[in-house]
């Protein structure tokens, strides 16, 4: 085995793992956004997406991402506090 080959293989694997993880995270976020915002903004589906539904939906997407960040920050705080107690 060569040190260069090993390094290259390691870096390739890390990149793949990182990408797969990011893709999975994005997919979960997109599914949750669609589920929540469709429920909130398209209560009675018509023959096309109305202007109001359109506006509501995009605002909801932004709101959901903001909510994700808020919950994430609260969770990180919680985890840090719990670790401090141990």
């Amino acid at each position: 085995m060569s040190a260069t080959g090993s390094k290259e293989l390691k870096e390739n694997l890390m990149r793949q793992i990182q990408q797969e993880s990011a893709t999975q995270n994005a997919r979960l976020l997109i599914d949750a956004i669609q589920d929540n915002c469709f429920t909130k903004c398209v209560s009675k589906p018509g023959t096309s997406l109305s202007k109001a539904e359109n506006t509501c939906y995009t605002q909801c997407v932004d709101k959901y991402m903001a909510a994700w960040n808020t919950v994430s920050a609260a969770l990180m705080k919680r985890i840090k506090e719990d670790q401090g107690l141990q």
């Binding site: 589920d35 909130k40 903004c41 709101k63 959901y64 903001a66 909510a67 969770l75």
Partner: peptide, 20 residues
């Protein structure tokens, strides 16, 4: 975070009147 955001968004965000 995904599980909690999903649950808490349903409880806390009742109307969509703005993007923030």
């Amino acid at each position: 975070t995904h599980v909690m955001t999903d649950m808490c968004f349903k409880k806390c965000v009742t109307g969509i009147k703005s993007a923030s």
